[in-house]
Design a protein around this nucleic acid. Structure first.
Length: 331
DNA sequence: TTTAATGGCGCG
DNA sequence: AAAGCGCGCCATTAAA
């Protein structure tokens, strides 16, 4: 048995079956089946049944007071988890199409949570890398491995990417080791080197833990509070979980604030300019609009500017924009 | 038929 | 003792 579920039963999740697939043929078949069954059961079978008879469209609900970090949540159906990571999944995404005479325009923030971390921590090295427009995972790899950015290998960049994401989530050396398939001591070494190179980030992490412990809450960029329940729990595991949530909350929560400001700015602009383009989806760091052909160039130009102008941070904001006949093409 | 718990997995 | 944040929804199982 490689892993247990919270209730103590043997786990058969993807991580476990992936490892078993190295020694046996069956686990891979189960994983393939599960992947296809997920797509069929959640999307292919369900979404066509949810088309509204009046409009001929699928309409999601956006829950504004559900996620503790201030994100929106989408339900009935959830349109914030439409597949994108596999070729089969993207065929489902491609089913979201613009009407005749229109196109879909999608814009998403680049590395928004890491940029917010750079802003909140005021770390000089991280801010410099973003200001220079560097590939942030490559830049991190160069720092951690002590080589020139141009000399970073694909594996070193992959390691740095896992480290960068792990930081946002409060990952430990244990988790990093498991994710990278390396010894825990080696993982701890990478973390130590990261914090030595980005001392502002180390300070920010520690200050966030202290703030959560002393005040019982942490705040976003715009002062919205998120309560850190369990932060003083006598149960060490609960306390550690609360600390990870408190580390993540300012970044995820500030990103949520930013895109909401962008949505408000967008609504005002569309109104002022008398444009027929419509905002139809928000997916945490992405906005999707349905745009008449004649408005395409204006929207494509202005949308990323509005998103990047949602706040003045210590680092530049970047939004990538795409256009297409369907959501997969636009993404 | 509905509700709840569980394990799992789609997304950012 | 656990080990990576935030969601919603699926199938399965058991019980109301």
């Amino acid at each position: 048995m490689l892993k247990k579920t919270p209730s103590g039963a043997p786990s058969t999740d993807e991580e476990v079956l992936d490892r078993l697939a190295l020694d046996y043929p069956l686990p891979r078949l189960i994983l393939d089946y599960r992947g296809l069954a997920k797509l069929k059961g959640t999307y292919t079978d369900k979404l066509p049944r949810m088309v509204d008879a009046k409009t001929g469209r699928v309409h999601t609900r956006y829950l504004q007071a559900t996620a503790v970090t201030g994100r929106l949540a989408s339900s009935d159906p959830n349109l914030q988890n439409i597949p994108v990571r596999t070729a089969e999944g993207r065929r489902i995404r491609a089913c979201f199409v613009a009407p005749p005479g229109h196109a879909l325009v999608s814009a998403d923030y680049s590395q928004i949570e890491l940029r917010i971390m750079a802003h909140l921590s005021r770390d000089a090295g991280l801010a410099r890398a973003f200001a220079a427009g560097e590939d942030i995972h490559r830049a991190t790899a160069a720092e951690v491995f002590g080589v020139e950015p141009a000399a970073v290998t694909a594996e070193q960049r992959r390691y740095a990417k896992v480290i960068n994401f792990g930081l946002i989530y409060g990952m430990s050396a244990f988790g990093l080791a498991r994710e990278l398939g390396i010894e825990r001591a080696a993982a701890q070494g990478f973390i130590d080197r990261y914090f030595a190179r980005y001392p502002g980030v180390a300070r920010f992490m520690e200050e966030t833990r202290e703030t959560a412990r002393e005040r019982g809450y942490v705040e976003t960029l715009f002062g919205r509070r998120m309560w850190a329940t369990d932060i003083r729990s006598g149960n060490a595991a609960r306390r550690a979980g609360a600390e990870r949530a408190a580390i993540n909350a300012p970044m995820q929560g500030s990103a949520a604030d930013l895109i909401k400001r962008a949505m408000i700015a967008l609504a005002r602009w569309l109104d002022e300019e008398r444009l027929a383009a419509k905002l139809i989806l928000q997916v945490h760091d992405e906005l999707v609009l349905e745009v008449p052909e004649r408005e395409l160039e204006r929207v494509r130009g202005r949308l990323p500017e509005l998103m990047c102008g949602a706040a003045e941070l210590a680092v530049p904001l970047v939004a990538d924009v795409g256009v297409g006949a369907n959501w997969d093409e636009a993404h």
